[in-house]
């Protein structure tokens, strides 16, 4: 019995199981979702001089309010309207959440602890994040509802605006460090973090991350005051939980990538602490969590852009800045002879 237990524990700590299932995979995603939605409501409440969620477990400021909300969502009857396209309507939330979660398998936790290492891992990660918007557009069509369709199309417009500059900003860091391998990129930032070497790429990537995940001021595809909940309007119960969770998961994944590309990943931990994956993992998670918290804080302080303003920002500001970022990287590489 003891042998079996120790075997199961050792199996759990193998990178190919630990990373997709525990960190940065499902378990941490689940806890992070519950925490971040509570934090979002709490921060917005503080800014607007309210209490926010408070009554479920008062001593800790209502922190398990989101657990109660989740239980409500789980046991709510999922309503499927008669006019929707049933297969697409039911399949898209699952695909959307699955594709938002999929890139976590590529993310390394420490220099020696990763499920998958390739000299193209950054490119693979960026590619996997481009697949999810297909399902938001499909969701808008399948719901057979004007608000949903407009929400889906707005998502399409945003994709056109953010995808290319985001790729360019991320790849400018690959140019700077001469590698597309996330482990190499994080290891190269032992001294100076990428954000300080190439701040233009850092700032444009951060703005584009919030744009791609529909956070304020770019919460255009699901603008409540205009189009109810955008592509998610017709969803209820656990399916609504899945589609709402997907955008937070995408924010989490992109924040982890940002932490690796610009904030040094698991650095500045000393090499002696790298043997156990928990400490570097905690460092990486802390950095990503701060970025997510900034993202949800923006909800409280910014108004929403119109779709044409968001497209202008994407094409007229982010694209030139990301091209500039590539030139800055090339300049640094030319001067220093490679990082």
């Amino acid at each position: 019995m003891q042998d079996l237990l120790s075997f199961l524990i050792s199996l759990l700590f193998r990178p190919c199981i630990f990373i997709p299932l525990i960190f940065p995979g499902l378990t941490v995603i689940f806890i992070m979702l519950l925490m971040i939605i509570w934090l979002e409501r709490k921060i917005a409440a503080k800014v607007q001089l309210r209490y926010g969620p408070l009554y479920v477990f008062k001593p800790l400021g209502g922190v398990i309010q989101t657990v109660a909300d989740l239980l409500k969502d789980l046991f709510q009857e999922p309503i499927i309207p008669k006019t929707v396209d049933k297969i697409a309507f039911l399949l898209t939330p699952i695909m959307l959440f699955g594709l938002a979660y999929l890139p976590t398998v590529v993310i390394p936790v420490s220099p020696t602890f990763y499920a998958f290492r390739s000299d193209l891992s950054l490119l693979l990660l960026l590619t996997l994040t481009t697949l999810a918007p297909i399902f938001t557009v499909l969701m808008g069509w399948a719901s057979n509802n004007k608000f949903s369709l407009i929400g889906g199309l707005r998502e399409g417009y945003l994709v056109i605006s953010y995808e290319i500059p985001m790729f360019l900003s991320a790849l400018s860091m690959a140019v700077l460090y001469g590698s597309l391998d996330l482990v190499d990129i994080a290891e190269a930032q032992k001294g100076i973090w990428g954000l300080f070497l190439n701040p233009v790429a850092g700032i444009s990537m951060l703005v584009l991350i919030y744009m791609s995940t529909g956070k304020f001021p770019f919460e255009i595809p699901e603008a409540e005051s205009e189009i109810v909940a955008g592509a998610y309007t017709e969803y209820s119960g656990i399916m609504y939980g899945l589609v709402m969770g997907a955008s937070y998961v995408k924010l989490y994944v992109l924040s982890l990538v940002y932490a690796i590309l610009f904030l040094g990943g698991w650095n500045p931990l000393p090499a002696s602490m790298m043997d156990n994956p928990l400490l570097p993992g905690a460092m990486l998670f802390a950095k990503a969590f701060i970025l997510i918290a900034i993202g949800v804080f923006l909800r409280a302080v910014y108004p929403r852009f119109r779709i044409d303003q968001a497209m202008n920002i994407g094409w007229k500001m982010a694209l030139p800045f990301s091209i500039l970022a590539i030139f800055i990287s090339l300049g640094i590489v030319t001067i220093t002879g490679g990082m």
């Binding site: 193209l120 481009t130 297909i134 889906g152 199309l153 399409g156």
Partner: peptide, 25 residues
């Protein structure tokens, strides 16, 4: 693998989003 990744991001990620985006309307 690099052609495979570009195929995925260009022909699936971008092109299909555009096609869906147009035909949904």
């Amino acid at each position: 693998p690099i052609i495979s990744l570009f195929h995925l991001s260009v022909y699936v990620g971008a092109a299909v989003t555009f096609i869906l985006f147009s035909v949904a309307m």
